[in-house]
Design a protein around this nucleic acid. Structure first.
Lengths: 199, 199
DNA sequence: TCTCGAAGTGAAACGTGTTCCTATTATGCT
DNA sequence: AGCATAATAGGAACACGTTTCACTTCGAGA
């Protein structure tokens, strides 16, 4: 292997490493999906991914990094799916609601996974700022695109609005994950907020 | 002591217990203020409060419960201070911004404490739902009161709006705590969001 | 005052995230 | 092929949240 000292970020050298990395993320999803945040135990992830514990930590410096990176990958996949289709709805509000409903439904279909990823995201400290930013950017892009599907790039105003909506969505997700509100309440709250903001 | 089996919640029997409880919360604040979330170590809290570890756990079943309860006490104090004075500003938006600015400034004056309390709040799981609800209620009350200082009780619409604003505020706080945005950006984002929602 | 149950003490022990260390294996270069 | 170096395996060790337990102290009622 060439002197790749930093395997952080995206640039992984060999395809063996890329595969290992994917195995780790897949194991994380499997465990999170089965038992939530607590079930994602680093030893279990390592064993599941057929990797030594030290190797796992070489790829992801903490459990939180691991989970937030997993979240980023899921968001990327979701965004790719979303980019292929035209978003239904005649107004920005309708389209945003459509996207959020779709995404939220996806998450609520796997409560344990959602709990694990959401809690990791919210618990993250400064050392995870970079990964968090990736997720924030993806979320913002999804929302601005829903607002103006034809715009090449989002204006500052739209970015600010999308950020507010994203904030509300995250808080709503946390409320749902902690059992403070039901799926229906979450959906209703989101819809009300979007109509309030995008009126 | 009388047969108080559940000392959860507020009703503490003797004043000795009340004092112990206050000592624990004070110790929590001192440690959090000095070193943030990681510095609030249960053994250290116990020692600081001059209480055995088992006693600490008798009063607060987990570190997260402890920190969220601490947050609730701080909020109660803040609300009490706020209730005494008339909130400056001629419109609901101005008054809400005034309250948020004031509170946010207070928090940003003690970054470590804020980091500890915020992360605990966001990391909480279902078992902390009750304490979380208390904080949510206080926050909502502060905001609806700022919106309509003269109303005896808040209407459903106002509560919903306050909740959206509270959501944005929490997310903004998390962004600030994790170093994703500066104090100025946080303030600007909050103000923009409030004007957007309360226009 | 005596007694009894609840509350508190002190310390050991356990689980899991994280770190560290040594031996082994893979990889690129000459 | 042989060497140098990075990556991985395997596992011990450590830190801190949490649990447990045997013992002591406290306080209210007989």
């Amino acid at each position: 292997m060439s002197g790749t000292h930093a395997l952080s970020g995206e640039a992984l050298g060999s395809s063996a490493q890329r595969r290992r990395r994917e195995r780790i993320l897949d194991a994380t999803i499997a465990l999170a999906s089965a038992g939530g945040f607590d079930a994602v135990q680093m030893r279990a992830v390592a064993e599941h991914a057929d990797v030594a514990l030290g190797t796992l930590y070489r790829y992801f410096p903490s459990k939180i990094h691991l989970l937030v990176t997993t979240l980023a990958r899921e968001f990327e996949r979701e965004e790719a799916l979303l980019a292929e289709r035209t978003i239904p709805g005649d107004t920005p509000a309708d389209r945003v609601i459509s996207v959020l409903r779709r995404t939220t439904r996806g998450l609520q279909g796997d409560p344990h996974l959602t709990e694990a990823l959401t809690r990791a995201f919210m618990f993250a400290d400064k050392s995870v700022a970079q990964e968090i930013r990736v997720v924030g950017r993806l979320l913002n892009r999804m929302l601005t695109h829903a607002m103006r599907p034809d715009a090449r790039e989002a204006g500052d105003e739209d970015v600010a609005i999308a950020r507010v909506i994203g904030d509300v969505w995250l808080s709503a997700l946390v409320a749902w994950v902690t059992g403070r509100s039901t799926a229906e309440e979450t959906a209703a709250h989101m819809e009300r907020a979007v109509r309030l903001i995008l009126r």
